[in-house]
Design a protein around this nucleic acid. Structure first.
Length: 675
DNA sequence: GATCCTCGAGTTCG
DNA sequence: CTCGAGGATC
């Protein structure tokens, strides 16, 4: 009698735990606290330990069990797991529609269902009498691999359906198709963890989901934040809905997670306008999508339409432009920066990505290459950071042929041939030859660049030309250039020479902060240069400073102060300063104290992101600085405001995440009191 | 001593 | 945008 009561409690506990698990993982709206949930599970475990004879495969305590497998066995699917034809344009989509209308005119009156195409892995789940009995990968569509033990660990996959027993019973036999994936955020967190443990990281969420499902030890899979969305019934022996829309509702009732981004469209025009919204929706989704799937809602009609090759006619995938693409790493080139740092760049088999043809990408540094085990001739995955600058995510290891070459960092500077140096503990390798021509070019380039002296019309080509001709040996020489010298250079006519000379003269008016930035002292950029200018007022005073004095300035420690004092101590640089002074390039700055009442933003740190309606990025920065505010690049807890414009990317998300106040341009102007 | 934050440096293509 | 490094902070 007591036993009986205990058994009832056990069953009730299982039901409760399954239900709350479902509330949490599927509906994302838990109704009890984590602590309460843990208590239920603990009690359940206790009873199960006392009565091992009562264990059952649908018990929530049995998700990760069963030990380590040797390999996965093959599974024949009950029906082919179909792939879909792809289209890449709205025109193609319309063409598809017109084709199938021609085949069967009832299509013209049919509804469509539009669903996201998640970039994950297709899995096939078998239920008998409501119990999950098998789970498999898609494989080649006919035969997959048995990964039941791993799929059982995915909390949003129901072990027993329907999860809510008040719903109608499940068919005795039901096979469901779904997509297993990992959310972007969870991917980042997991990779971070792997990196900290010194383990190999994954390339992207899809790759991670694949790797997680292929673990032979289900406890590892259990530790991965896998999710599933179900969208199809592969086979069944009971009554199942005959429209896609109803199938999704049915799956939801059974307790499967179903995408909430699904749309039912009355005709093809509605589908097309839905697709227009999808470019925005795609960016906001917490997981990666590579397109949307458009299905005829009437599944019987869809079936009757038949196949083209292996693809059913009644559905089609509309693919988004790829954000990542793979190509061959032809070679690794070396750049020498103005500080002498050697940076490896990837020379790529040209490939289109986001509307441009990418031929090169940064590899950051030599450690990065080693860490990711990137080899020459590897197939590598490329992504455009912030949709702009391409970088190599890592090698596609599966595509290895054995002909790949491990890359060895050079021992000599590729430009001047001098041996390169490396400080232990640091990542960068330096060419320390102060007369290395590459460094001179980069140095001059930096000097004339927009954030520095801003000499308009002087690009890298002209800089190289001037150095080659022997007219420029250091940046001071720029101010000694004469018209007749320029006219001797190839491609220089009078107009061009005059324009260049005029902008050189114009640059002499640049404020001291700009000049300090332009000098290119290691560790001194825009921000610190502004502080130094305000603290010292002119270059003579600055050149006489000491390390101790410099360290009074915020952000200056032993390393940077040493670099500054070093720089001014070098004979070459002393000569340069003499040249600049002689040429009249000698701006001074007022050592002013900040007037608080006119400076509404004093003490505030702001970050600007996206494109603002009226001001340029630099203008806004200046505006904020004039109001006493500080502009930085990265958002943290210390950021007071984020000024957001059009096309703001990840920074906006970060701001929301950290609860940083968000302003638009008008909001900023109001804050400054400029409206 | 560890962790957080900020800055600097290098980056692609049209 | 990414990464590394230096500095600040706890």
């Amino acid at each position: 009698m007591i036993e009986n009561k205990l058994f009832q409690e056990l069953q009730s506990l299982r039901e409760q735990v399954n239900f709350h698990n479902y509330r949490y993982h599927v509906l994302d709206s838990p109704v009890i606290s984590d602590a309460e949930f843990d208590r239920l599970v603990a009690r359940l475990r206790q009873i199960e330990t006392e009565h091992p004879e009562w264990t059952s495969s649908d018990s929530p305590t049995m998700r990760a069990g069963g030990g380590v497998a040797e390999k996965f066995s093959k599974v024949q699917h009950p029906a082919p797991i179909l792939s879909l034809a792809n289209t890449f344009s709205l025109d193609d989509l319309r063409a598809w529609y017109e084709r199938i209308v021609k085949i069967d005119e009832r299509v013209a009156d049919s509804e469509f269902v539009v669903e996201p195409k998640i970039d994950g892995l297709t899995v096939v789940l078998h239920y008998r009498n409501g119990l999950l009995v098998q789970g498999a990968t898609r494989g080649d569509g006919e035969v997959g691999e048995d990964i039941t033990a791993n799929l059982r660990t995915v909390c949003s996959i129901p072990l027993r359906i329907p999860v809510d027993p008040t719903n109608p019973k499940a068919p005795e036999y039901l096979v469901v198709r779904g997509e297993v994936f990992i959310q972007n955020r969870e991917f980042e967190i997991l990779n971070q963890r792997l990196l900290e443990n010194g383990d190999k990281t994954y390339l992207n969420p899809r790759n991670t989901a694949a790797g997680s499902l292929r673990q032979l030890d289900p406890t590892i899979t259990a530790s991965r934040p896998l999710m599933i969305l179900a969208y199809n019934i592969v086979a069944s022996n009971g009554e199942v809905p005959q429209t896609q829309w109803e199938v999704l509702r049915f799956l939801r009732r059974m307790g499967f997670p179903v995408s909430d981004q699904v749309e039912r469209c009355v005709d093809i025009e509605t589908v097309l306008s839905s697709l227009e919204r999808w470019t925005d929706i795609r960016d906001r989704l917490p997981y990666e999508t590579d397109g949307v799937v458009i299905k005829l809602n009437d599944l019987r009609l869809s079936n009757e339409l038949g196949f083209v090759g292996k693809d059913p006619r009644g559905a089609i995938a509309f693919k988004f432009p790829a954000r990542e693409v793979s190509t061959v790493l032809l070679d690794i080139g070396i750049n020498v920066g103005r500080t002498g740092v050697l940076t490896p760049t990837a020379v790529l088999e040209p490939i289109e990505l986001g509307g441009v043809v990418v031929k090169q990408a940064t590899l950051h540094n030599f450690d990065y290459i080693a860490e990711k085990d990137i080899r020459i001739k590897d197939r590598v995955l490329i992504k455009r950071a912030g949709e702009v600058i391409p970088y190599v995510i890592g090698p596609v290891s599966d595509a290895r042929t054995g002909k790949e070459l491990v890359f060895t960092p050079p021992e000599a500077c590729p430009v001047c041939g001098q041996t390169v140096e490396h400080t232990t503990g640091e990542v960068a390798w330096y060419c320390v030859n102060s007369t290395c021509p590459a460094q001179l070019v980069r140095n001059v380039e930096h000097f004339v660049s927009r954030g520095s002296m801003d000499i308009v019309g002087m690009g890298i080509r002209i800089v190289e030309q001037l150095i080659e001709a022997g007219l420029v040996r250091d940046v001071g020489d720029l101010f000694m250039l004469r018209r007749e010298q320029l006219l001797l250079l190839e491609g220089f006519a009078e107009k061009k020479a005059d324009n260049l000379l005029a902008s050189i003269v114009e640059s002499k008016k640049q404020p001291l902060a700009r000049l300090i930035t332009a000098l290119g002292i290691r560790g001194v950029g825009e921000v610190l240069a502004a502080d130094l200018a305000a603290a010292y007022g002119d270059l003579d005073t600055l050149s006489r400073t000491t390390e101790e004095e410099l360290q009074q300035i915020e952000g200056v420690g032993p390393n940077i102060s040493r670099a500054i004092v070093d720089w001014f101590g070098r004979e070459k640089n002393k000569q340069l300063l003499t040249k600049l002074k002689a040429a009249g390039v000698w701006p001074t700055a007022k050592r002013k104290t900040i007037l608080k009442e006119e400076q509404p933003l004093v003490g505030l740190t702001l970050v600007v992101t996206g494109t603002l309606p009226t001001y340029s990025r630099d203008q806004v920065k200046e505006l904020i600085q004039k109001a006493g505010g500080k502009v930085t690049d990265s958002i943290s807890k210390k950021t007071d405001y984020v000024v957001v414009g059009e096309n703001a990317g990840s920074k906006l998300d970060k701001a929301r995440e950290l609860g940083v106040k968000i302003l638009d341009e008008a909001g900023l102007l109001a804050l400054i009191g400029k409206v």
